Computed example of a mutant assay.
Amino acid sequence: MFMRKNQIKCVSKAVLVIIILLFSNELLAQNQRVNSKSNNYFWDNVQFGGGIGLGFGSGYTDISLTPSAIYNFNEYVSLGLGAQYSYVSQKNYYNSHLYGGSLIALFNPIREIQLSAELEELRVNINPNDPSLTSEQFWNTGLFLGAGYRTANVTIGVRYNILQDDNKNVYSDAFMPFVRVYF
Score class of each variant (00 low, 15 high):
I104R: 09
R123W: 12
K91Q: 13
A117E: 11
R111S: 14
L65V: 12
S78A: 15
G100M: 05
L65H: 02
S68Q: 14
W43L: 14
S86A: 14
S78T: 04
E118I: 05
Y76T: 12
A69V: 06
H97S: 09
L145W: 07
D44C: 01
T141Q: 12
A69R: 03
D130Q: 09
K37E: 15
N125L: 05
P131F: 08
S135I: 01
G51P: 11
E118N: 10
F42G: 14
L133Y: 12
L54E: 11
G57F: 04
G148H: 05
A83E: 02
I70G: 00
W43N: 08
I63V: 15
D62A: 09
I113N: 02
G82W: 02
W139P: 02
F48A: 05
E118Y: 01
G59N: 05
S116P: 00
N39D: 00
L98A: 12
V34R: 07
F144R: 08
G49E: 08
Q137S: 15
N125Y: 07
I113D: 07
S38Q: 12
P109M: 01
R111L: 09
D44N: 13
G50H: 03
S68T: 06
N129E: 11
Y87C: 08
N129R: 10
N74A: 06
Y99Q: 07
S116I: 08
S38P: 00
E112D: 14
G59I: 01
G53C: 02
L133N: 15
Y87R: 10
G49N: 11
V88S: 10
L81V: 07
G50L: 00
F42W: 10
V88A: 07
F42S: 13
L122M: 14
E75S: 15
R123M: 14
A105C: 07
G148Q: 03
D44I: 00
Q84F: 11
